[in-house]
Structure formats: C-alpha cells, structure tokens
C-alpha cells in the first residue's frame, strides 16, 4: 500500500509583521518631551508646595535650625560694630514681626556679595562693601537683605529645594537630604525674581524710614549695573543671583515717585575710617611710608 508522501513547506512571510512601523527617533522625541513636561510640572508643583509649607515654620524654629550650623566668630572690630548698629537702625524701621532678630556678619573676603540666610543671618562681604560709595547704598543693601528675612525668603527657598530634592530622591532612589550642603550657612539660597522685587520694595521703604529720602538706592543699583557691565567676564557673584535690569531700577524709581519719596536730598557719607576698617593692614603700610 502506497502513501502519498506528505509535503511540507514554509511560506515566505512578509516583513513588518512583528515590528511596528513607528520610527524610533520620532517615538523617542515624543515620549521624552512628554516626560520632561510632566517632570517639570511636578517639580514646579512640589517646589511651590514646599515653599508654602516652609513659610509656616515659626521663625524661632528656623533660628534653632540655623544655630545647628557653624556660624562665623564675629570679632569685635570697628567694622562689625558699625554694621551691627546700622542694621539695628534699619531693622527697627523694617516692621519686623515679633521675635525676629537680625544677625549681621562681616566676612573679610574679596567677594562682591551679600546675602541673607536662615535664622536672620546676613553675610556682608568685604569685596562688595569696598565698592559702595556712601552709607545710603550700604543701608539699601542691608535693608534689601533684611526684607528677605522679613518675607521668610531663605526658609521658603530652602523648603522649595528640599521638596524638589526629596521628590528626586524618591524617583531616583538615592537620598541626599542634607539641607544646605557642605558649605552650611554659607550656601547661598536662590531667591526668585519675584522675591527680589518685593525685597527691593520693602528695602526701599525701610531706607526712606531711616533717612527720610531714598537717594542712594537707585544710585546703588546703577552702580552695580555699571560694575556688571564693565566686567562681563568675571561677573561678581551678587549679580548672578540679583539680575540687574533697567526694569528693576525703573520699578524702584516708580515706587519712589509714587510715594513722593525725595531722591535729591544730601547723601550720608560712610564713616571716615570705613576704608581703613576694611583694609587695616594696607593702611598701616601706607602710614609707615
């Protein structure tokens, strides 16, 4: 008995059955941009909620947190005493809430910077003080930083940063929740443009309360602007965080005009020995010669 031998064959299978036609690069661009938008939005939301919650922390708690970090040993120098009395004068007129105290620290370093941080601590660097032409502009600088403390900007900025880095830690699984980083209180916190504008306004108000006029404020910002302009390559640290646009000067000018705050009164000069206090050794040398 004869069988018909069975026949076997493999058909030719058309291409693209198991592989989708979507171009990998197009898919990548689509998915990646959606992911970036989602991450950006959640970071923003997280930051805003962190900022909001941090502002609810009582100032006393914030001060206690700040005192857990290393603070500079303020030596009893003339410059330190002068800055303290000046900041006392300004903070008295700044309408600070009860229990909020300002601690001023003079740092003998050639950095053109000044900033406010947790617990009402304000750092003023020699490099910036050296450039200021009169007491009014120095007072405006201090008043601006005091206004940051008054608005709770340092703790709000920190809260924002902590919320975002916590979110990142959850996402990436690596936790680096050191609040301020290795530099401790010397870490400069980032303030938003809105925070800066509000600090300008409140600072200007305090300046008016102290001197009865606001001359020196706009000259300060013009001077700072000129300094930044003239030295584009090595922009001083202060300007990186305090964007100095003509807008900002205009805002201050408008505020002064609106409130009829005089801008043409006599300025108060810096104490005679101010430069000497900043550079004691240099002046000693000059005297010997």
């Amino acid at each position: 008995m004869k069988h018909n031998p069975p026949t076997f064959s493999n058909p030719e299978i058309p291409e693209g059955i198991n592989v989708s036609k979507a171009h990998p690069m197009a898919t990548f661009i689509k998915l990646f941009s959606v992911l970036v938008i989602i991450l950006g939005l959640s970071a923003w939301l997280l930051g805003r909620s962190g900022e909001y919650l941090a502002a609810l922390i009582p100032f006393q708690k914030e001060a206690r947190l700040a005192s857990s970090y290393d603070l500079p040993n303020d030596s009893e120098t003339e410059i330190q005493r002068y800055l303290e009395s000046l900041s006392k004068k300004i903070s008295d007129k700044s309408n600070l809430p009860n229990g909020m105290t300002i601690h001023i620290h003079y740092i003998d370093e050639d950095i053109e910077n000044a900033f406010a941080t947790l617990g009402g601590h304000i750092f003023l660097y020699k490099g910036l003080l050296d450039k200021l032409p009169n007491e009014n502009s120095l007072s405006m600088t201090i008043a601006h930083e005091i206004a940051h403390v008054k608005h709770r900007d340092p703790i709000r900025s920190l809260g924002q940063g902590v919320a975002i880095s916590t979110g990142l830690a959850i996402l990436l699984g690596s936790a680096n929740l050191n609040l301020l980083g290795s530099a401790g209180l010397y870490t400069q916190l980032k303030f938003s443009r809105e925070m800066e504008t509000l600090a300008d306004q409140d600072g200007l108000k305090a300046l008016f309360q102290v001197y009865g006029h606001v001359k020196g404020a706009t000259t300060l910002f013009k001077l700072l602007g000129d300094l930044a302009e003239g030295d584009k390559i090595k922009t001083p640290t202060f300007f990186e965080t305090h964007p100095l646009s003509q807008d900002r000067i205009n805002t201050i000018q408008n505020l002064a005009n609106k409130n009829r705050w005089a801008q043409d009164k006599a300025i108060t000069p810096l104490p005679q020995d101010f430069k000497h206090w900043l550079n004691p050794t240099e002046y000693q040398k000059n005297e010997q010669e």
Partner: peptide, 19 residues
Amino acid sequence: KRFLATLHNFFGGRVTSYE
C-alpha cells in the same frame, strides 16, 4: 533603544524599541 525602552516602561504600551 534601551533608553527608549525606559520611556516605554514609564508610559506603558508597546515596547517598540525591543520589537
């Protein structure tokens, strides 16, 4: 493609980069 697969992992759907 491995990077792209991570994105597919996030959003779900066909992991076209491994097909």
